[in-house]
């Protein structure tokens, strides 16, 4: 486990050594705040909860998270440091896990910095803080799922732009799978596929968590989703490490 932590620490420090971290956090906080108070209608709704905020987080992450993950492996390939990393006495899965954990910790920091929203809603009314906590858990799980996809896409190329575009595309597929447009279209033609689409939809699962229900099967879904893409990541690295 020491190796995983060493990799995670280096990656996390790497985010803050470049402007990436600050740009990400500032843009995320500005967009989240702006959307919550304008389109989200935080005040107009007259309800003490954070659903105007939570509704936007998965869509914001859809574009921001791939920006975090695009460099994870692509940059190592471009600089050649992948040869250094993979010739250190470290099982490959630990390198994969370490990078993922660093990016996840970074997302947790960004989410934690939205605390003024929690303070505001508690000041203005009496929200159910349990539901808010469940919403944050949901945000973190969605971020983890996007990160796992993004890291796997980054492993496939040495070009960061390609890694970003691929990650957004694949994440969008899983985000939008459960949206009414998709499921209605499918249920009229292939009802079986509509069920499947709803089953793999990240947003659908997120909405359950956001309502305050942390069910085991949803957590298991996110865990297996993340586990699957980390596995893909490890396989891709193993097969194409020297390319």
């Amino acid at each position: 486990m020491g190796g995983t932590l060493a990799v995670a620490r280096r990656e996390l420090a790497g985010y803050f050594a470049t402007p990436v971290a600050y740009v990400f956090i500032v843009i995320f906080l500005m967009m989240a705040g702006a959307l919550t108070f304008t389109i989200g209608g935080f005040f107009q709704r007259g309800q003490a909860d954070l659903s105007p905020f939570f509704n936007f987080v998965p869509w914001l992450f859809l574009f921001l998270v791939p920006a975090l993950t695009m460099r994870l492996w692509a940059e190592e390939r471009r600089l050649g440091t992948i040869e250094l990393l993979l010739t250190l006495p470290l099982p490959q899965w630990q390198a994969v896990l370490g990078k993922f954990l660093a990016a996840w910790a970074f997302c947790a920091i960004a989410l934690a910095l939205t605390f003024p929203l929690v303070v505001t809603v508690n000041y203005l009314g009496r929200p159910d803080n349990g539901v808010i906590a469940a919403g944050y858990v949901g945000c973190l799980l969605v971020a983890g799922a996007y990160l796992a996809v993004g890291a796997a896409m980054s492993a496939m190329t040495k070009n960061q732009v390609i890694a970003f575009v691929l990650a957004v595309a694949v994440c969008f597929l899983f985000a939008a799978a459960g949206s009414p447009v998709v499921t209605e279209f499918l249920s009229q033609r292939v009802p079986l596929l509509a069920e499947l689409a709803r089953g793999i939809s990240l947003i659908e699962r997120f909405n359950i968590l956001q309502r305050g229900v942390i069910a085991l099967r949803d957590v298991v879904f996110f865990a297996s989703f993340i586990g699957f893409f980390l596995f893909v990541n490890a396989v891709v690295i193993d097969h194409r490490k020297a390319d």
């Binding site: 020491g2 190796g3 932590l5 060493a6 990799v7 620490r9 280096r10 420090a13 790497g14 050594a17 470049t18 600089l79 050649g80 440091t81 040869e83 250094l84 250190l88 006495p89 470290l90």
Partner: peptide, 19 residues
Amino acid sequence: PTYPEMTVTAFLKFVARIR
């Protein structure tokens, strides 16, 4: 190849930790 944004000490510490 080395990580360009790291300082010499930080880079070597990282390698030491992995080792």
